[in-house]
Design a binder for these strands. Sequence first.
DNA 1: TTATGTGAACATCTTCACAGCG
DNA 2: CGCTGTGAAGATGTTCACATAA
Lengths: 280, 280
Amino acid sequence: MTAHGDDVRDGDAHAGTAADPQSSDGVSIPEPQDRARAIPEAAVARLAVYLRVLSGLDEREVHTVSSEELAVAAGVNSAKLRKDLSYIGSYGTRGVGYEVAVLIGQIERTLGLTQQNRVAVIGIGNLGHALANYGGFPSRGFPVTALFDLDPDLMGVPVGGIPVDHIDDIPRVCAERDVTIGAIATPAKGAQEVCDRLVRAGVRCILNFAPVVLQVPEEVEVRKVDLAVEMQILSFHVARRSQEAPESTDSEDTGAGAPQSENRDVNTGDNPVDGMVVRP
Amino acid sequence: MTAHGDDVRDGDAHAGTAADPQSSDGVSIPEPQDRARAIPEAAVARLAVYLRVLSGLDEREVHTVSSEELAVAAGVNSAKLRKDLSYIGSYGTRGVGYEVAVLIGQIERTLGLTQQNRVAVIGIGNLGHALANYGGFPSRGFPVTALFDLDPDLMGVPVGGIPVDHIDDIPRVCAERDVTIGAIATPAKGAQEVCDRLVRAGVRCILNFAPVVLQVPEEVEVRKVDLAVEMQILSFHVARRSQEAPESTDSEDTGAGAPQSENRDVNTGDNPVDGMVVRP
DNA sequence: TTATGTGAACATCTTCACAGCG
DNA sequence: CGCTGTGAAGATGTTCACATAA
């Protein structure tokens, strides 16, 4: 699968100006269809992060930020941040910085957060519960409106305020509630089957938590969250680290005992998926 | 893109050291320290996926696979898969394919799965429970050996067989049980604080589920799993889709009703984080 | 003078296409 | 021949560095 053919088009971005950047060089074929919506995939992911940081600033009544400040808070370098923001337009003021409120608005617009996306969660186990209780994911815009499972004991039982339906009803319920995003939190076994049903029900975006590679038609977008893979990547780094650094010093390494953390208090966004309240 | 592997890394993303002989072209300066362990970050993530697919094949008693078959099952193209495998060595047989068992062994070795990584989960809410019950994540190698929270009512209560400790005990308990990976499943508020403690306790790899950008010293590796971000990325695609395709047809799209899915039964790996058993 | 916005250099990742081993 | 392994071409993504606007 990998992808639709399209996705990330070339990066000429905002049309406007000069029609053709370097027409020279016979080789480079000037692109097929040149749509303007060309925001690098990687930049989209970061915009979401900037948005969260900005929301935090907004709550703390901070009205202006420089690319440098925002960058540090988001954990990226400022040049990258500026370039990312440039993809959505020029909303900064040279010599000053960006207006928090403006940026929030523009990023939300770009990410399509101005319109709601109704979410269906399939598989009401531990994770499913967590998702259901998430209650309209952080930053709003993602109300969970349908829950599915196949355990008879769960049918009709409300979780996070929404009654659980049987996965056989996916087509009907998803259509009725106009679900646009499906979150698959089932065991690996049933995932592909559930996915197929969602697709047949017209759902075009899927968040997959099951440890399987879903096969979908190209018009469907799948994002996967795979704990095992994340763990193994960390494992790789642990392994690499221990073999590169023959050190075995147990005490503390160079530098202060307390890890540096410039702006640790900037963010907000609260509760991830839990009920625990950590107040250190 | 559909189903990426990567997922925005955190922090600075230590340059991966290009390595490689590439002596051609006068321009390229041979580079400073040229460590051999140069497996592209992106490839590491995919190796974990290949591993899962291979495990599935192994269980079904399949002993040999071609790059093409494996590629389809993993959702990547075969050239990429071959290149990825080439980073860990040449274990295929031209004209034939790869031996499943051999590949599994080599990938496990590369990912450092031959040695266990003890995991600590901090924040025993819905997600924390899910993680705790995960019981030694899929593909083994990741036993959860410590749980932390600050709710007095949870202290000592065993979850998934492990008693919950207070986050103040992170240093002691992590040291005693030799924790190498910390999974932060707390609300945003306490995340940075918990992270700092883990780092001080010597944990060098962190899986962060809290919606915050953690600030850590560079020797610490952070991977983040951010639901809100994933949702927003999907939202972006939903939005883009609807504005590019002025269609509003509600009925079914072209093609068969059932989505194509070549090898949907190849994978195994079971239960993601739930208790639900889907058997369609 | 400060900090944005961006062309261009650089680095990383992906895909092609084919040499060459079995 | 079939399929792996890989150099080299092509994309994408990141960083630099500076012209430019307020």
